[in-house]
């Protein structure tokens, strides 16, 4: 009970920090809009490639949601770097606070941010004529999938933050993974148009699990087989990621 309360307080702290930084807040809101419009326009002609089915906006909307989760939550670890540098971390560690709340509170915050961004994406996509064949349930499942991926990404990023303790390390590691994981998925390009080896790799890429799950949930008449397995895989990944984060945190504490 008290652990839950402390997690909630850490979550509120994250939210407050976001609302206090107008520039960052504006970016958080504008970014999804720009991505959908910019990438949507850039790749429109993809839909004219023989073998592509449907409209590009229908195809691309789940991809943008997943990319936002990957790119937004990726920077979660920066907060840990800041807290360590400012002495905030040591102060928290000398208190009896439940250690898990420091990680879980931030992850929850990242998950909420991606859900708010997803709302913007969905509204904008509707304006651009997207057809959410999965209905409300399908769209809600897309929210869940985005949040799940954000949780995993944030956990890994937090682990890098406490182990690396430098902004440069977080930036380096996170940006090393972001673009390759994006392009090794079907977020921007239909699977049958990817080179064969990329199709194989994408089967093992969690970003692609999220893209396929979100697309199957929201943009098609919901395919429960795909949605169910993808959500299960993402839940598994989130558990592994939080284990990695708590191991990293324990290691950080031992190094003090």
């Amino acid at each position: 009970m008290i652990a839950l309360r402390q997690t909630w307080q850490v979550f509120l702290r994250g939210l407050r920090t976001l609302l206090r930084q107008p520039a960052f807040l504006v970016v958080t809101i504008i970014q999804p809009i720009v991505w959908l419009l910019l990438f949507g326009a850039l790749f429109r002609s993809v839909s004219r490639i023989p073998g592509f089915h449907g409209t590009y906006i229908d195809f691309f909307t789940p991809g943008v949601v997943v990319m936002l989760a990957l790119f937004g939550a990726g920077w979660s670890g920066m907060a840990f770097v800041e807290d360590i540098a400012n002495g905030v971390m040591e102060r928290m560690l000398t208190s009896p606070v439940w250690r898990g709340s420091l990680n879980v509170g931030w992850i929850a915050y990242e998950a909420v941010v991606i859900m708010v961004q997803t709302v913007l994406i969905v509204v904008l996509a509707l304006i651009l004529g997207a057809d959410f064949k999965g209905g409300i349930i399908g769209v809600l499942l897309m929210f869940l999938i985005g949040a799940l991926l954000a949780c995993s990404v944030a956990s890994f990023s937090n682990a890098v933050g406490v182990l690396g303790r430098r902004r440069e390390t977080v930036i380096g590691v996170v940006s090393f993974f972001q673009l390759p994981l994006t392009f090794l998925s079907t977020g921007m390009m239909q699977r049958n148009l990817l080179p064969r080896w990329m199709q194989t790799v994408s089967d093992y890429n969690p970003v692609n699990w999220a893209v396929e799950g979100a697309r199957a949930a929201a943009m098609q008449r919901t395919d429960w087989g795909i949605v169910g397995t993808r959500i299960a895989m993402l839940v598994g990944l989130a558990l592994v990621a939080s284990l990695v984060a708590s191991r990293a945190f324990a290691r950080y504490q031992r190094s003090l």
Binding site: Q6, R13, R16, N86, V88, R91, T94, S95
Partner: peptide, 29 residues
Amino acid sequence: RIGVVGQKHGSDPNATGRENLVLQGEFYG
């Protein structure tokens, strides 16, 4: 049973003085 004031500031620069104190209290239940 202890209070600790470290070498570095332990407060969150983006939070107000009151918010820092409230969060600190919550950490102690």
